[in-house]
């Protein structure tokens, strides 16, 4: 701080607290709604303070699911979400690591051509090629499979760029030394490059896990079988069912559960998260 102005500092704190309150309010309301029983959640005004039904609702939502919504238990959908998120994050990191390695460390025909092909994916988000991509996945028989959920999303220009950037900062002497010691390309990659990129991999994993977990449009298109529903999709189903009978205590419990893993990752791996976010957007 440049000067001592207690009043300005006080105002800053007040504004920040107010800002935090606005940002956190929806989450607080969600938590409160998940702690009351169904009967309380249809009385106006709705409660602002938590009730005592949290664990009962948790058990009901996780293991039984919303009655009449035609959706599987939320615990089941969370497992699907987890598998999808891990496959997307792991897949993106794996294929981007090896393609960045090839582009930076090898001289081979069409090198730049491949680089630009990967670059193009940046300009083609799922949203702009919904129908034809769906057709491809359907023709390959990948509807309602984990492969269909994850593989079409794992090409990644940003991850490839990030690893390219990281590899370019690694001193050439390391490769020379490795060569003198008789290491081949794959040996060099596994024993030197991957360990050196460890923090970048972790930071990227945090970002990509959130990305994967929060996918919505794509799972909505490729899954018709209930056993493949993800939790983020499940919320939408419940909202539709809420038109008839609002079971807000369960819908909000589901929302809470759906945001828990990614929020947990952001809060407890904050340093990696911030690193990942600022590096991939460059």
């Amino acid at each position: 701080m440049v000067e001592h102005r207690p009043i300005v500092t006080l105002i800053s704190h007040l504004v920040l607290i107010f800002g935090v309150a606005i940002i956190a309010f929806p989450i607080w309301i969600t938590f409160v709604a998940s702690t009351h029983e169904a009967a309380r959640m249809v009385q106006i005004p709705l409660p602002l303070l938590p009730g005592d039904q949290f664990f009962k609702n948790l058990e009901q939502t996780l293991f039984k699911g919303l009655e009449g919504a035609g959706a599987p238990p939320v615990g089941f959908m969370m497992v699907n979400s987890l598998i999808m998120a891990l496959m997307i994050a792991g897949g993106k990191i794996a294929i981007s690591l090896i393609s960045a390695f090839a582009i930076v460390y090898f001289k081979f025909p069409f090198r730049m051509g491949f680089f630009w092909m990967i670059f193009i994916t940046l300009m083609l988000p799922v949203e702009v090629r919904i129908l034809p991509t769906f057709e491809v996945v359907a023709n390959l028989g990948m509807l309602n499979t984990y492969w269909g959920l994850s593989i079409p999303l794992i090409a990644s220009a940003t991850a490839t760029f990030m690893f390219r950037q990281v590899f370019l900062t690694i001193p050439d002497e390391l490769l020379e030394a490795a060569r003198i010691d008789g290491a081949g390309p794959m040996r060099f990659f596994i024993d030197i490059l991957v360990p050196l990129s460890r923090t970048n991999i972790a930071a990227l994993f945090v970002i990509l896990f959130i990305y994967g977990w929060n996918q919505y449009l794509w799972p909505l298109l490729v899954t018709t079988d209930q056993s493949m529903y993800t939790v983020v999709m499940g919320i939408k189903q419940m909202l539709e069912a809420a038109e008839q009978s609002p079971d807000w205590h369960q819908i909000m419990m589901t929302s809470l559960l759906a945001m828990l893993p990614p929020v947990f990752v952001v809060v407890f791996m904050q340093r990696l998260f911030v690193k990942g976010l600022t590096e991939t957007e460059k």
């Binding site: 935090v20 940002i23 977990w213 945001m259 929020v263 809060v267 998260f273």
Partner: peptide, 12 residues
């Protein structure tokens, strides 16, 4: 306290 909404899915 300010960064967690980033992790919340749009649908949620």
């Amino acid at each position: 306290f300010l960064i967690w909404p980033y992790a919340v899915a749009p649908v949620v």
